[in-house]
């Protein structure tokens, strides 16, 4: 499972003719697994040529600034996806956790307690999702949807339908307001989280077991993997990571809105799906997800700077997603059939 599934074509032999070297199929094979990166490069060139505002430090900083929550949510949904499950509760969960942290802030000014509330409760909710899916054998699609809807009610209940913006300590909002090397702490923490997850997924038995379960739970079980326990941990990890995203969201907004959260579900999944086209085609992976987030963010930013009509951006996002996943699927087939 940890073997590289991408077979990169080596450098062309010096004796080959120019015609051979310029063969389109051969050129394409060079970028195999990195088409999304190529598309990103093309977009950057196009936007740089068409807008003098695009390739500036300020603009690129602005692009990165608002990606912390979306990126963290994408990392969260990756965990269940890797083991072949869905977690549809994450959108409602982040809304609930942000509200919970804001409510906690009404009772204590201790930022440690406020910041810990999200990840701790997120972890517990993730365990409940895992329990329902793994031990009660409810489809993850249904179980997590049910938990999500339940959480949306809880969010309304603890907020009483109001936006809470009082008593959020400035030490909490510092995560979003303080910069380091031009990027907010939230962005750096998101990158740190991505690095940790990349290491866990790619270089530890833990990650291998998850990918093994995603490939075939039965085979993984016969190979000695404690599949139930590992599946539980994937859901718990998703809840925990959503807790981190809740911290970033509360820091960015400085308030909690009872309607916040559900809208983050689909962008997170879109980025995760788009990520399968990069680095390890056909497999959910951290690097691919990060590239996908950057690609979608650059597309959104560049099209906005060009002043395109508002309906163009969803068409762009949808088209990129479909094309990228089709390409990844084709490559995965080629790899599997040798």
């Amino acid at each position: 499972m940890t073997d590289k599934t991408i077979r990169h074509i080596g450098a062309p032999a010096s004796g080959r003719s120019t015609r051979e070297r310029l063969n389109p199929a051969r050129l394409l094979s060079w970028v195999s697994g990195y088409e999304t990166l190529v598309l990103l490069g093309v977009l950057i060139v196009v936007f740089t040529l068409t807008s003098d505002r695009f390739l500036t430090a300020d603009n690129l900083q602005n692009v990165a600034l608002v990606q912390a929550v979306t990126a963290t949510m994408t990392l969260a949904v990756l965990m269940p996806l890797i083991i072949g499950e869905f977690d549809l509760s994450v959108g409602y969960l982040i809304g609930f956790l942000v509200m919970l942290e804001a409510v906690v802030a009404q009772h204590t000014s201790n930022p440690g307690i406020i910041i810990a509330a999200g990840p701790v409760v997120g972890l517990l909710v993730g365990l409940v999702n895992g329990l329902l899916t793994v031990y009660f054998k409810i489809s993850s699609f249904i179980a997590t949807l049910g938990v999500g809807i339940l959480l949306s009610g809880a969010t309304q209940g603890i907020s009483n339908g109001k936006v809470i913006f009082e008593n959020i300590p400035s030490s909490v909002t510092t995560l979003a307001s303080e910069d380091f090397l031009g990027l907010s702490l939230a962005v750096w923490l998101t990158l740190l989280l991505a690095v940790v997850l990349f290491y866990v997924l790619e270089h530890t038995p833990f990650g291998r077991f998850w990918y093994a379960i995603g490939g075939s739970e039965r085979v993984a079980y016969l190979a000695g993997v404690r599949t139930n326990r590992m599946r539980m941990t994937a859901f718990a990890a998703a809840g925990l990571i959503v807790g981190f995203a809740a911290n970033f969201a509360l820091a960015q907004a400085g308030s909690a809105n009872p309607g916040y959260g559900p809208e983050l579900l689909l962008p997170a999944y879109a980025a995760a799906f788009l990520g399968v086209a990069t680095y390890r085609p056909g497999y959910y992976n951290v690097l691919g997800a990060l590239v996908a987030i950057i690609l979608l963010a650059i597309g959104f930013n560049g099209l906005s700077l060009l002043g395109v009509p508002f309906w163009v951006q969803p068409i762009f996002n949808g088209s990129v997603l479909i094309i990228a996943v089709l390409v990844a699927r084709q490559e995965t087939r080629q790899v599997r059939t040798g």
């Binding site: 695009f54 500036t56 692009v63 979306t70 963010a297 930013n301 700077l305």
Partner: peptide
């Protein structure tokens, strides 16, 4: 809010 924040930043870049 995510899109609205992002568009404010895009507006600044513009």
């Amino acid at each position: 809010p995510d899109k609205q924040n992002a568009q404010m930043l895009n507006a600044l870049s513009w």
